[in-house]
């Protein structure tokens, strides 16, 4: 058994992957596209939190909120200026791939390429006998939980949540009964990409920050939603959890081989269940 600290690191990574994968699935289920630039929104979220704390001096939770809101706004612009003017899922995919380089380049110019790190915003640890957990890590897990609970309530008990689920399942009927699919797409783009930013922001105080940190989480959350079942929100959460733990626990044992094991596992899951763990024939 790996030490408890490794499991906790796994949980922390799970939090980021879950939040990010959730956003990707939301966007996919309404807009029908995979947003390849999701990882760069994650990176931008980390930078917003970094500067919110170091330059502006606002508390971590507010910085996190700012990351979500600013990147949500940015993603809405991306949709209006770029995505809306391109037809065909493949071409939209390629366009958002291009944006990866745009955002990484822009971030390098504006923020610089060197690693940045936040001092622990919440110093102190909880002693649990054989091991201890920092308040910072507890905060990460708590924030993720709060975000997930808010999303759950929004999706299941509000009018917009009903509209989102209905549109994901049957867009024609939803628009027949008055859902403006265009407006809903903008909202969902904002929520989904805002979530990516918050995922990046949540773990910003624990890892180094630079313009290129978006790639790995993007691949991980993509894998998460593929093994979870493309289009399934539950699948995104479970997939994110699995990959977060695997990534840290397998890496502890196998070091550089861990990616190989990870991909093999994904292939095996897909061989057994091609639709993913929670994917059904209908969304």
């Amino acid at each position: 058994m790996p030490p408890a600290g490794i499991w906790i690191d796994g949980l922390i990574q799970s939090c980021a992957y879950m939040t990010m994968a959730f956003g990707m699935v939301l966007v996919f289920s309404i807009l029908g596209i995979l947003n390849w630039t999701h990882g760069q929104f994650y990176m931008l979220g980390a930078f917003v939190v970094y500067y919110a704390i170091t330059a502006v001096g606002i508390p971590f939770p507010l910085g996190l909120l700012a990351a979500g809101v600013l990147v949500a706004g940015l993603s809405i612009l991306v949709k209006k200026i770029i995505i809306d003017h391109i037809t065909g899922d493949l071409y939209v995919g390629v366009a958002t791939m291009g944006l990866i380089f745009f955002f990484e380049g822009a971030a390098s110019m504006i923020f610089g390429m060197q690693d940045k790190g936040l001092a622990r915003v919440l110093p102190g640890v909880v002693d649990l006998g054989s091991f201890s957990v920092s308040y910072q890590k507890i905060a990460v897990v708590s924030f993720t939980l709060v975000i997930m609970i808010i999303l759950f309530i929004m999706l299941n008990f509000t009018r917009i949540g009903l509209a989102i689920r209905a549109t994901a399942q049957q867009p024609d009927a939803a628009s027949l009964y008055g859902v403006s699919v265009e407006r809903l797409s903008l909202t969902v783009m904002g929520i989904g990409c805002g979530l990516a930013a918050m995922a990046g922001g949540i773990i910003a105080p624990l890892y180094t920050i630079n313009p290129f940190i978006g790639g790995i989480p993007m691949i991980m959350s993509l894998l998460a939603i593929v093994i979870g079942g493309l289009g399934s929100l539950t699948g995104a959460i479970v997939g994110g959890l699995i990959l977060g733990f695997l990534n840290s626990v397998v890496a502890y044992h196998l070091s550089y081989l861990s990616e190989v094991v990870l991909f093999m596992l994904v292939v095996i899951i897909l061989l057994v269940r091609p639709q993913g763990l929670f994917g059904a024939s209908v969304k």
């Binding site: 009903l162 399942q169 049957q170």
Partner: peptide, 9 residues
């Protein structure tokens, strides 16, 4: 045509 219900609602 074809009902177009929301299958998971």
């Amino acid at each position: 045509e074809g009902r177009k219900l929301f299958p998971l609602l």
